[in-house]
């Protein structure tokens, strides 16, 4: 007997998967092909002679590109790691035995994540003003600093200020996901661990963390995506000045002046970085599923 073209599962799956996949493809395949082609084209709109690797070579010789790559790595590294641990810590705090009104605390803390990007960036830019900004005013009246800190006007501080705001905005997401995860943990596991005489650290290492592996993956992935792609926040607060230009901003600056081939080459480079993370992630998740 010949093997049927489609298995029974496949026949069922197609009508469900196809619409969603097609719509997504419709939205991203053209842009992807477009930037890929443009990155190998000579400059100009609608004139697209083949340019080989010229655009990429130009890119690597642009001092701004090198700085943007290193800024992106620093920015992503700090925001992802700190947001993750801070969010997790917040979740553990709320989850503590004896804390009342868990839902209220959770909601209040989550508000930071909901505020529209432009709004929070504008507000923070203002709060971080060196002269007459609320942050400096508060820190000075608490005697934590002696003079105003040039938050957004010195290369040394600008990155820190941006990282603080990104953490402020994204840690609540981790907090929410983690509290959601913690709620689902079966209490009997802890009870039996208590009977075995396990201490808090043991329980954390052997029960809590492994059980939260999936939700942690989701959180880390989202944090990565947000960090690499963040645009509105940096654009509003520093416009990429004070050495805070990331790849995302570099691409926007190029697209804005219709430097399409150069912008596309930068975009392809950024996609390569994202792709590495995406492949790693699906590997991990799919491997899990097969087990």
């Amino acid at each position: 007997m010949r093997k049927p073209l489609l298995t029974k599962d496949e026949k069922k799956a197609i009508p469900f998967v196809l619409p969603g996949v097609l719509v997504t493809a419709l939205l991203i395949v053209y842009p992807l092909v477009y930037i890929f082609v443009m990155s190998f084209s000579e400059n100009g709109v609608g004139q697209s002679g083949f340019a080989g690797f010229t655009n990429y070579i130009r890119l690597f010789h642009n001092p701004q590109f090198t700085r943007a790559v290193s800024n992106t790595l620093i920015w992503t590294g700090y925001t992802v790691v700190i947001s993750f641990f801070l969010g997790f810590a917040m979740a553990l705090l709320i989850h503590m035995k004896g804390i009342r009104l868990k839902g209220i605390w959770r909601s209040l803390l989550f508000i930071a994540w909901i505020i529209p990007g432009v709004v929070k960036a504008t507000a923070w830019k203002w709060l971080f003003t060196t002269d007459g900004g609320m942050v400096n005013h508060l820190l000075m009246s608490l005697k934590l600093i002696s003079g105003p800190v040039p938050w957004l006007t010195s290369p040394a501080w600008a990155k820190t200020a941006l990282i603080i705001v990104q953490i402020w905005a994204t840690a609540p997401y981790v907090m929410l996901m983690m509290t959601a995860g913690l709620q689902q943990l079966p209490a009997d596991l802890y009870e039996s661990a208590d009977l075995d005489g396990a201490n808090g650290f043991d329980k954390m290492l052997h029960i809590t963390l492994p059980m939260l592996k999936d939700v942690s993956f989701i959180c880390l992935l989202m944090l990565l995506v947000w960090a690499i792609n963040e645009f509105a926040l940096i654009w509003t607060m520093t416009s990429g000045g004070q050495n805070t230009t990331t790849l995302s901003l570099l691409i926007y600056n190029q697209f804005k002046v219709l430097n399409l081939n150069f912008a596309s080459a930068s975009a392809v480079m950024q996609l390569c970085v994202s792709m590495i993370f995406a492949v790693l992630y699906t590997r991990l998740v799919l491997k899990e599923e097969k087990q």
């Binding site: 969603g20 842009p31 995506v225 645009f231 996609l271 994202s274 699906t282």
Partner: peptide, 17 residues
Amino acid sequence: LFMLLSQMLPLTVLMIP
């Protein structure tokens, strides 16, 4: 992987196309 990747596309890249 495809669905995941589309989630990772920077919007500044998608803007013009």
